[in-house]
Amino acid sequence: MTQEHPPLAAGPRRGLRIGIGGPVGGGKTALVAALCAQLRDEMSIVVVTNDIYTEEDAEFLRRHAVLPDDRIRAVRTGCCPHTAIRDDITENLAAVEALVAAHDPELVLVESGGDNLTATFSYGLIDAQIFVLDVAGGDKVPRKGGPGVVRSDLLVINKVDLAPLVGADLDVMRSDAAKVRGGRPTVFASLRTEPAAPDVVRWVREQRVALLTG
């Protein structure tokens, strides 16, 4: 199931809400950490993480001190991850609203638990979504499509430094992503070799400007 992207909801002091989803191990939490580290000095940020049974992703962010602990909240979904970000967003929305009430943030990041290519966020929870893949699944993954690959506002293909080791052709991935995404942007990244994620940071800044001026 996919949803049409509504216009970003502008308004005074309205924080931009970005969902970050994708399969297990793609680099979602590393990307959240990078965005917090790069943007925390220019805007107020809060984070909601999702894990099925643990708070491991939230604890990773706390250990790396990317934000003060009270700006990070963990949701234990106890179910398939996409359920809590798309089908019944109640718990995630409550976590977001609690952080908004406490901190009045300019940027809210909601990280999904690891899921497959069908995972998408409800636009009742977020304004825009990033989908994170890595090259280890092979260069065939973008052309397999799926709502996460096709409909996300930004596709991030991570761990490009591993491409020679797993036999992934980045040119094939780039071409296939362009074919299935209908003009939506795709970023190739290595959060290990370039942890600042400059292209994704730039995109987030652009979304924030669009919200304020839209």
Rank of each mutant, 00 (worst) to 15 (best):
D171K: 08
T120F: 02
K179Q: 15
F60V: 15
G21C: 01
K140C: 05
E56N: 13
H5L: 09
A74Q: 00
A30S: 15
F131Y: 13
R151I: 06
E194I: 06
E4L: 02
P142E: 11
K140Q: 15
A65W: 04
R202F: 04
V160T: 13
T213M: 06
L8I: 15
L99F: 05
P12A: 15
V156F: 01
A101G: 08
D51E: 09
V96I: 15
M1F: 08
V172N: 03
D115F: 05
E55S: 06
T90I: 07
S152H: 05
E206F: 01
H5G: 01
T77V: 12
E56V: 08
F188H: 07
D161Y: 00
D139M: 01
L170V: 10
V24C: 10
G11R: 03
A94P: 05
Q207G: 08
L109T: 09
D153I: 03
P7K: 11
I85N: 04
R63L: 08
A197G: 10
I89H: 03
H82A: 11
E206S: 14
V200S: 04
F131K: 01
P198Q: 13
G145H: 02
V149R: 03
F121Y: 11
T83V: 15
P6H: 11
I89M: 04
Q207I: 09
Y123H: 12
R71F: 04
D104Q: 13
A101N: 10
R40A: 15
T90S: 13
R174G: 09
P105D: 11
L191Q: 07
A197W: 01
G22Y: 03
T83I: 15
G146N: 08
D88R: 11
V135N: 06
E106H: 09
L16W: 05
T193A: 13
A163R: 00
D104N: 14
L170E: 04
E55H: 06
D169G: 03
A98E: 14
M173W: 03
E106I: 06
L39V: 12
P23F: 03
D87G: 06
P142A: 02
V150P: 02
R174V: 07
W203Y: 11
L154C: 01
S152F: 00
P147D: 14
F121H: 04
H64Q: 10
K179N: 14
E42R: 09
A210S: 12
R76T: 15
Q38M: 10
N92C: 13
E42S: 14
R86Q: 14
P81R: 04
Q3Y: 09
E206I: 07
T29I: 09
P198R: 09
L109K: 00
D115V: 08
T90Q: 12
A9C: 09
R181F: 10
G15H: 00
V135A: 05
T83D: 10
